[in-house]
């Protein structure tokens, strides 16, 4: 945790010129432009798009991977239900004809056969409506909902983290408790983003030698 606090302090130190500028009282427009620039991810951090992609991949919520689901039920109806059968028939019919004048007559009819049958059956109605479509729509809607929730959470974490970093840089304040709370919240958000993205944020910070690496 100590390292983490140092890391964030380093990040703040990179932004101190902005803080100084704010204290000098630059026009609000300039300040806002600077804040906008600072809100963009630092070069040693993954971009928001990269974080989103990682989160989607981790949660298997990528829309591309489910793009073929909708057409699948109707397409499936083009393929028939195939039936193959082998029949071996054996039949034996014995008869005894009895008559008062003629002698009894005994006869046997026997049949034996072997056949192969193949059939294909198409349910044409499923080309128009396949009951499986309903389940697919439900699954896709759930998937979209899950993806939206995931991305909304991730975007919220991302910008809250950026906001805290920028706010700490331009207006650090002098209340040690408030500063500590802010730094802890940044660490908490970093961990939360890592949890959603499989550790992409921390990994990138480490690899690109961000403030974390410098601090070490």
């Amino acid at each position: 945790m100590k390292t983490a606090l140092i890391l964030t302090l380093c990040a703040f130190s990179l932004l101190l010129p902005v803080a100084a500028a704010a204290q000098d009282g630059p026009p609000a427009k300039d300040l806002r432009a600077r804040i906008d620039a600072l809100l963009s991810p630092a070069p040693d951090e993954p971009t928001l798009a990269e974080l989103e992609q990682a989160a989607l991949a981790l949660a298997d919520a990528d829309p591309q991977s489910a793009s073929g689901w909708l057409a699948a039920p109707n397409r499936a109806a083009l393929l028939p239900v195939l039936k193959l059968s082998v029949n071996h028939d054996m039949g034996r019919n014995e008869s005894l004809d009895r008559d008062q004048v003629d002698p009894d007559r005994y006869g046997v009819d026997a049949d034996r056969g072997l056949s192969f049958d193949a059939s294909a059956e198409w349910n044409l109605a499923e080309l128009v409506f396949n009951p499986d479509e309903v389940r697919v729509y439900g699954a896709l809607a759930d998937r979209a909902e899950r993806r939206q929730g995931l991305l909304t959470t991730l975007v919220g974490y991302h910008f809250e983290r950026r906001r805290l970093i920028v706010q700490g840089a331009i207006d650090p304040g002098d209340d040690p408790v408030a500063i500590a709370e802010r730094l802890l919240r940044i660490e908490e958000l970093t961990a939360a983003i890592d949890a959603l993205t499989g550790g992409l944020l921390s990994r990138t910070l480490k690899r690109k030698g961000g403030p974390g690496k410098k601090a070490r």
Partner: peptide
């Protein structure tokens, strides 16, 4: 529902009588 079927078979029929 549309079904198409085909079949192939071979068999033996035996008819015997004693009188």
């Amino acid at each position: 529902s549309l079904g198409l079927g085909a079949g192939l078979g071979r068999g033996l029929a035996l008819d015997e009588s004693d009188v």
